Amino acid sequence: MTQRNVVFPPGRQALYERYRYSPAVRSNGFLFVSGQVGSTEDGSPLEDLDAQVRLAFTNLNAILAAAGASFDDVVDVTVFIVDPESHFERIWENVVPQFWGSAPFPNVTCIGVTWLAGFRFEIKVIAKLPEGHGE
């Protein structure tokens, strides 16, 4: 196997090293981003759900920017929500439009889960890297 081409956003490398995973990996012109949550630099969750979602997108955008991409380059989104029946509409109406951009939108899969290690929202994406920013 070839060595992974890992992308680290500024300020969070210690967190990824502590939990032994890469925030994102470039491969064949794509960027595969690990699930991002609303965690502070020490890894702790924000209490407020809207603040968690905003910070998850902020963390995601920092990774995309470190790879030379933006949310406009995202082609695939997977969202995990604890208790989506209670929270999905609130998240999708109040917070997501601030980060999502305009149509055409990426494809989305939303999965309801019972546990996210103290978090209530997680987002992972695959982005097509702009020319010159691929592997």
Rank of each mutant, 00 (worst) to 15 (best):
1 M>L: 08
71 F>K: 00
20 R>Q: 12
17 E>I: 05
97 P>Q: 13
32 F>S: 00
7 V>L: 02
100 W>M: 10
122 E>C: 15
56 A>T: 03
31 L>T: 02
72 D>R: 03
132 G>E: 10
34 S>G: 01
35 G>A: 12
60 L>G: 00
83 D>V: 14
3 Q>I: 04
70 S>K: 01
44 S>T: 12
28 N>P: 01
126 I>H: 10
102 S>N: 10
51 A>T: 15
125 V>L: 08
114 T>I: 10
17 E>Q: 12
92 W>G: 07
134 G>H: 11
33 V>G: 00
62 A>I: 02
125 V>K: 01
70 S>V: 03
130 P>V: 13
131 E>A: 15
14 A>I: 04
78 T>G: 00
10 P>D: 15
27 S>I: 06
94 N>V: 05
59 N>F: 06
3 Q>T: 09
51 A>Q: 12
3 Q>D: 14
29 G>L: 08
9 P>F: 03
109 T>S: 14
42 D>L: 08
130 P>I: 14
81 I>K: 01
88 F>C: 07
84 P>D: 13
80 F>Y: 14
131 E>T: 12
23 P>L: 02
57 F>I: 06
95 V>P: 01
102 S>T: 14
75 V>W: 02
69 A>Y: 02
79 V>N: 05
41 E>I: 08
52 Q>L: 12
6 V>H: 07
52 Q>N: 09
126 I>S: 14
28 N>V: 07
113 V>D: 04
103 A>T: 13
117 A>S: 15
105 F>P: 05
120 R>K: 11
13 Q>A: 12
92 W>S: 09
19 Y>C: 01
16 Y>S: 03
22 S>C: 02
36 Q>H: 03
92 W>T: 08
119 F>T: 14
60 L>F: 01
4 R>K: 10
131 E>S: 15
127 A>K: 05
112 G>K: 05
50 D>H: 14
51 A>S: 13
20 R>W: 09
105 F>G: 04
6 V>N: 06
43 G>E: 12
85 E>D: 13
88 F>S: 12
29 G>F: 09
79 V>M: 11
126 I>W: 10
18 R>G: 00
116 L>N: 06
34 S>V: 07
8 F>Y: 13
97 P>L: 13
118 G>Y: 07
49 L>P: 02
4 R>T: 11
135 E>N: 15
66 A>N: 02
4 R>C: 09
6 V>R: 04
24 A>P: 06
129 L>K: 07
43 G>S: 08
56 A>F: 06
98 Q>K: 10
46 L>E: 09
26 R>E: 03
79 V>T: 12
9 P>W: 03
92 W>F: 13
81 I>Y: 05
91 I>S: 08
97 P>D: 13
18 R>V: 13
77 V>R: 04
60 L>P: 00
5 N>W: 07
135 E>H: 11
12 R>N: 04
85 E>M: 11
69 A>K: 03
71 F>Y: 10
114 T>K: 10
